[in-house]
Every structure is written in C-alpha cells, then in structure tokens.
C-alpha cells in the first residue's frame, strides 16, 4: 500500500516541495554576512511598497471614484496609493541597478533575474492601466494620447485604452494577480537559490 501512497500526486508534490524549499530555507534565521548592506534593502522595500499599494487600492475599490475625488480622506488614500507606487518603482529600479551591477543571474539564478525583469514590465502595465482608471482629465488625456501608440502596434483592437471598463478590470483584477504571482515566484526563487553574493567575495560562483 505504501507504494500506492508514494505514487499519489499529493505525496510526490509534498516531497518535492520539502526537498526544494524546506521550512528553514523558506524562513531562514540568518542571512550571509554580505547581506548586511543597504543595497540589499531595496528588494524588501519594494515588497513593502507593493503591500501598501494593494492595501490602499482595496480601500479605493471599496468606496469608489466619487469618494476619492471629493472627500478629504478619499484624497488622502488616493495620494497614498500614488506615492506608494512612486516608492515601489523607486525601490524596484534601485534594486534592479544593484542586481545588474552584481550580475545577480550568477550561480543558477537566471530564472530569478528573468522573473524580476518580467515583474518590472508587468508593473509598468499595471501602473499604466492605473493612470487610465483615475476618472479625471489626466486619465482622459493619457488614454487619448496612448491610443495612437497602441494602435500603431496593431494591439488597439484587443487592448483598447479608451475602454474604461477594460482598463479598470486590467488594473484591479488581472494585473494585480499577475504581479503578485510573479513577485511570489521571484521571492521563492530567491529563497531556493539564496541571495547572490558580491562578485569580489565569491568569485567562483556562477562562472
């Protein structure tokens, strides 16, 4: 009977997860000494900003455009959402520069680098659809300017920036799912492979 149980997909998946990412690797007690540098802070800062953006986005979704346009608290939460995005991109770009400078794809970390780059692109699309969802003159201006660019690629018939409903759904449903999934995968890969060491301290890694 044990062989039957061993062949179950749940058993095989559990063993694979336990082998690839044991709990002590997922939530480690310590990090290598080289991680004690400010340049390693920006990845976590990006995560914190993302959590803040999602939290304020949820509040904006609950109360709606008329609330965030006319009430003081609505203005405040709307601004928190915007400035959270500013900090998110700020931290993400400094994180990207740091990882590029230390060639963070070394040591079998190619997929970690690629998921980070794709997350950056997905974040741009998320922010873009957010600008189109403001329901003000700014969003009208951006959508009418962007339509020509999108149409020149041939994608305008499918991705119609003048279709407010489509842009709002992309912003509050599709892209958050994509972005969170990519970030989760990226962080899991960092946990599996470990934080990339500085080039000078570990020259034999990832030749």
């Amino acid at each position: 009977m044990s062989t039957t149980i061993d062949r179950q997909w749940t058993t095989r998946l559990r063993k694979r997860v336990e082998g690839t990412l044991p709990p002590e690797k997922l939530l480690p007690d310590t990090q290598p000494a080289y991680v004690a540098s400010w340049i390693y802070v920006f990845g976590v800062l990006t995560l914190v900003a993302m959590a803040e953006v999602i939290g304020t986005g949820v509040i904006l979704a609950i109360f709606g455009p008329q609330w965030w346009h006319v009430s003081s608290v609505g203005h405040f939460i709307n601004s928190m959402h915007l400035w959270g995005v500013e900090i998110f991109f700020f931290a993400m770009i400094v994180h990207l520069w740091g990882k590029f400078a230390m060639a963070a794809w070394r040591g079998g970390r190619t997929l970690t680098w690629v998921t980070g780059a794709v997350t950056f692109l997905a974040s741009i699309l998320t922010a873009f659809t957010g600008y189109l969802s403001q329901t003000n003159f700014d969003s009208q201006w951006i959508s009418t300017q962007a339509k020509d660019g999108i149409n020149s690629t041939g994608g305008g018939a499918f991705f119609n920036v003048l279709n407010f409903g489509q842009m709002l759904m992309w912003h509050i449903v599709l892209m958050p799912i994509v972005a969170v999934a990519l970030v989760a995968f990226h962080v899991i890969l960092v946990r599996i492979k470990g934080v990339v060491p500085p080039i000078v301290e570990n020259p034999e890694v990832g030749q």
Binding site: A36, S37, W38, I39, V41, F42, F90, I93, V94, W97, G98
Partner: peptide
C-alpha cells in the same frame, strides 16, 4: 534614485 543607489553602496550598514 541615483543618490539612493550610491548612498546604499557607500554608507555603512
């Protein structure tokens, strides 16, 4: 961003 990047490299943690 450039200032933050340089500061992150040179400031002691």
């Amino acid at each position: 961003m450039v200032v933050a990047f340089v500061a992150a490299l040179v400031l002691p943690f």
